[in-house]
């Protein structure tokens, strides 16, 4: 008998040889909750990792979605982020889960995703330095933890807290895409520039929404000598 990491209902795992031999992960969510999450699998945007099946054909061109084409046409942002990959579709249920984690402060929820993230992403980050997107100190105090750091720490690779958020600002979720793209100045700063020279860096965050946070962070890292920057998030 286990308890679901999200809804606390007791449930029993279905037994299988794969589980017994360690080839599959023990489920940490009950079947009801797990069923409401949608793993990103299949035809995705090569750049931002979003699932093509979820939006109309006219918003894509070849392997890319229109949003990414816009980013790559912008002189300032072209080639900054190598690629993003995400675990789940950012649907209503995942929004609920992340809200409970972030705004209610239920840090434990993140543990439900560690093993899935490890098995899905290992090949992407095996030779990279993991860098979580930081919070401002004020937000960090309010929450008590940084959700991106919690996700990064569960991936089984060294995590480097190389970034610092120097500007405390409104929650990203309260802004429009245009406001996010036009943001003046970069809110991030690299703390130990010598540590990243020639490194491949994988940024970790909870959600990729417009990609502007991740690109801002990638930019300061490249400016201080990082070789490449890509990113992994829980939701897209």
């Amino acid at each position: 008998m286990s308890y679901c990491y999200y809804c606390h209902q007791a449930y029993s795992e279905t037994w299988s040889w794969a589980l017994f031999l360690g080839l599959a992960n023990f489920p940490l969510l009950c079947q009801t909750c797990a069923g409401k999450l949608q793993l990103i699998k299949g035809d995705i945007c090569r750049m931002c990792g979003r699932l093509f099946s979820l939006f109309p054909e006219q918003y894509r061109q070849g392997d890319f979605c229109n949003d990414c084409i816009r980013w790559e046409q912008d002189e300032e942002w072209k080639g900054i982020l190598q690629q993003n990959r995400s675990l789940y579709v950012y649907n209503d249920f995942l929004k609920e889960v992340i809200a409970k984690l972030k705004y209610r402060g239920d840090a434990e929820v993140m543990k439900a995703f560690h093993s899935v993230a490890r098995s899905s992403f290992k090949s992407i980050y095996k030779n990279a330095v993991l860098v979580p997107i930081p919070l401002s100190d004020e937000r960090h105090y309010e929450r008590g933890f940084n959700q991106a750091e919690l996700l990064a720490l569960g991936l089984g690779r060294p995590v480097e807290l190389l970034l610092k958020r120097t500007v405390h600002e409104e929650k990203q979720s309260k802004k429009t895409r245009r406001e996010r793209m036009e943001r003046k100045g970069n809110p991030f700063e690299v703390m130990n520039p010598s540590n990243i020279v020639k490194e491949n860096i994988v940024l970790i965050d909870d959600v990729y929404t417009t990609g502007s946070t991740l690109r801002s962070a990638a930019k300061v890292l490249l400016d201080t000598g990082a070789k490449t920057v890509s990113s992994l998030t829980l939701g897209r």
């Binding site: 606390h8 239920d106 434990e108 960090h140």
Partner: peptide, 26 residues
């Protein structure tokens, strides 16, 4: 229904909290 996390507030590596009433603040 209890868990712990590394807490930015009290600097404890294992700050235990209650998950049962988390909807009203931790």
């Amino acid at each position: 229904l209890f868990a712990s996390f590394s807490c930015f507030r009290c600097k404890s590596e294992k700050c235990v909290y209650c998950r049962n009433c988390i909807m009203m603040g931790r």
